[in-house]
Amino acid sequence: MERELVVTGIGGQGIQLLAKTLASAATREGRHAMLSADYGGEMRGGPSKASVVIGDGPLRALPVLASAWSAIVAHHRFSEPALARLRPGGPAIVNLPLVDPASLPAMTVYGLDATAVAKDAGAPQAIGFVLLGAYNAVTRLVDPASLAEAMEELLPPYRKQHAQANARALAAGAAALDGPPAPLSVPAGAADLEEAPR
């Protein structure tokens, strides 16, 4: 089975790093992963999008995804093209209050204020990791320990001092939607939308 994630937001939110962290975590677990990045002039506030596909065998998914099972929406700006490709019923993690859950009527939406959660965790710069922790708490795509290991591995030597704060952000994001996480909204007829294994 292949699971696809699209991550959409703006430059500076950590979109690319969170996507890379998830793909690396899956690879650490011996699974097949693909990561495609799509961003503009590498500027703060510009469009930033990434997609991750994880599967147990060689992947069929294309580097430009035809459709996606799930989403992390960090910012409403520039998100429309990515959201148009989501298959109904799948999970979407949205960053409140920058994203209106009503903009994803066909998805099972989980919301958290990633900026506030990151601040409370003492990791104000790590909202991307908060969203990733929350996403993985909902989807359980990888072991949380793999995420933390991948995050640490990807930090360049001059940023190693951020490892602990990032780990707190991952955990705080997971905790924000833990136990079991309750969706903010579920599409009408959601039970019929439960996907058969692909």
């Binding site: 890379k20 699974r31 097949h32 992963a33 990561l35 495609s36 990045a37």
Partner: peptide, 9 residues
């Protein structure tokens, strides 16, 4: 560009 820039296991 897809071969150059896509990350794959």
């Amino acid at each position: 560009p897809l071969l150059a820039q896509t990350r794959v296991g």
